[in-house]
Amino acid sequence: MSVNAVRNGDAAPAVGEHARRIAGGLTPDEFKGAFRNHPAGVAVVTADAGAGPVGLTATSVFSVSTEPPLLVFSVSELSSSGPTILMADTLVVHLVGSTQLHLAQLCATSGIDRFADTTLWGRLDSGEPYFPSASVWIRGRVVDRLDAGTSTLVVVHALETQAPVAGSDAASAAESQPLVYHNRAWHALGENSLIPPTEGH
């Protein structure tokens, strides 16, 4: 249920009820097939709601507003990290590059302690767990949670970030090799994929 709906006293429809109203669409396989050739940037989300750190790999992160600075991502009801992510007031979204593929793979692997290697992670001064080696990380406060089928959309107000300074070697390296997930495989997006602008554009 939307936090805003709760605050405004509006009754949000139950997920099952909403799903029944829109039944008859694509099958899960058809829907996944339609998106299989649509590449997505890769992010890692970390949080700790008081019972220890969790992390998940997401390809659903995107910005929705600059004033205020808001981003969203989705959490599947099947995610083992989901309950903690959804309970957390604050969290960290890491926008990982190809050199941090190991972090994406780590947080996408089920049944392991993703934080067993203490050399990979630390805590921000504000307490959230994070991966210092990520190209970019954004600490934010959760401002809304919206039921969406078998997932929950999480809306985050960005509070703090660490990103390479524009024009620096680190910035160039991070920007030239983003990590992309496409057709069930990891890809490094580099100069070879650049399409020159056509005349008049």
Rank of each mutant, 00 (worst) to 15 (best):
A49F: 07
T198R: 14
Q162E: 11
H187R: 14
G25N: 03
L159K: 15
A108I: 04
Y181W: 15
I85M: 13
A51N: 11
I195Y: 13
T161K: 06
V3S: 04
V136T: 15
V15M: 07
S135M: 11
R114F: 01
L194T: 12
G41H: 02
A12L: 10
P178E: 08
Q177L: 01
Q162H: 12
R114E: 10
E191F: 12
A58E: 01
L103M: 07
P164R: 08
A19N: 11
L146H: 06
P196R: 14
L159T: 03
A51K: 08
T59M: 06
A23D: 13
H18A: 10
I195A: 10
V96G: 03
G167D: 04
G24H: 04
A88L: 03
E160R: 15
E160K: 09
V3G: 14
A185Q: 13
H187C: 12
L26P: 00
L71M: 13
T27E: 01
F31Q: 05
G16C: 08
Q162N: 13
E77D: 13
S63Y: 03
V72E: 03
A166Q: 10
G50L: 08
A19M: 07
D29R: 01
V42H: 09
F35T: 01
P53N: 04
H157L: 12
T119P: 02
V155Y: 03
A174D: 14
S135I: 01
V6N: 11
G190V: 10
S133K: 00
N183S: 14
A148I: 06
E191N: 06
